[in-house]
Amino acid sequence: MGKLGSLSQSEREAFLNLSYVNFPKGLEPDEHPEEVALAIFQTNAVSAGEGIGIFPRMARLNHGCSSAFNVVYSWRDAAKFLIVHALKDIRQGQELLTTYTNSKRPREERRAFLNDQYGFHCACDVCSLPKDLSKASDARLTMISVLYDKFASWANEEVDGVEAINYIRKIWEIEEEEGYWSERGQLAADATWVAASHSDASATEAWARTAIEWFSYEIGADTPQVREMKVVTGRPQSHRAWGTRQALVVGGPGPHEK
């Protein structure tokens, strides 16, 4: 409560008007303002560089799973502020939704987590799908997670670069079917790393361009990730992973490059 006292009246009101869950049983909120403040913080705090923070306007964003969420947020360390980016075209009056959890898992797992951590039963567009459509969505999301795990095995040299890139292409394809558009900048950057490791200059450049496009959507065109990828597009051999694996033509994004 000490730090709350240093806030202006409007800032305190914005903080105290935020929702919260997991308030200690048997206590009355009006009689324990310090517990209310702690519950608000635990419910709404997000990562902010090396620390964590409360951002009242961003905290008002509701949750959506998989294809239902349409914005993501990221912390700008140099400028010391948090920014929200649209992943998709948003109609006037359409609600902005972010995601509170890893959406790449079946509906019942998502709902169980959200109920436990945030105290609500998710009824977003994805969780409200009819049984047959929900089952198909669950299968896609589960397969995306499986493919991510298979791709990760490249780091231990359990699969070669061609297989790793094929896993990424398949992830991309299934995400298109699902309408899941988050994390694509990092996925393309990971593919750039694989291509550079195997000294495939053409693929390195192509994946870096794809990473630039999607990083620009998700975190902004003026970010370190975009600047790094721009350098790589001009000189693929400058990538810090260049030539660390056996030379191999792994291939670029192909039809998935927009």
Rank of each mutant, 00 (worst) to 15 (best):
K3R: 14
L4H: 03
L4W: 06
L4D: 04
L7M: 14
L16H: 03
L16T: 05
N17G: 11
L18H: 09
S19Q: 12
N22G: 08
E28N: 15
P29G: 06
P33G: 08
A37V: 15
L38P: 00
A39T: 04
F41N: 09
Q42M: 13
Q42S: 10
Q42W: 09
A45W: 00
E50D: 15
R57K: 14
L61W: 03
C65I: 06
A68H: 07
A68S: 15
F69T: 05
F69E: 06
N70T: 09
R76D: 15
A78P: 00
K80L: 11
I83Y: 02
I83L: 07
H85T: 10
L87A: 04
K88S: 09
D89H: 11
D89A: 13
R91F: 04
T101F: 02
S103W: 00
P106H: 03
E108Y: 08
L114H: 04
D116S: 14
D116K: 14
G119W: 05
D125A: 15
S128R: 06
D132W: 01
L133S: 10
K135W: 00
A136D: 10
A136T: 11
A139C: 02
V146F: 09
V146C: 01
L147C: 05
Y148G: 08
Y148H: 13
A152N: 11
S153V: 05
S153F: 01
E157G: 01
E157N: 15
V159T: 13
D160A: 05
G161N: 05
A164K: 02
I165A: 02
N166W: 00
R169Y: 03
K170P: 00
W172A: 14
W172M: 13
E176N: 14
E176A: 14
E176G: 13
S182Y: 10
S182I: 11
G185I: 10
G185A: 12
Q186G: 14
A188T: 08
T192M: 13
W193Y: 09
S197E: 10
S199I: 01
S199E: 12
T204R: 04
T204M: 03
T210N: 03
A211Q: 05
Y217E: 04
I219C: 02
G220H: 06
G220C: 05
P224D: 09
Q225D: 13
R227V: 03
V231W: 00
R235L: 06
P236M: 04
H239G: 02
H239N: 07
W242D: 04
G243F: 07
A247N: 11
A247G: 08
L248M: 14
G251P: 00
P255L: 05
P255Q: 12
H256M: 09
E257W: 08
E257A: 15
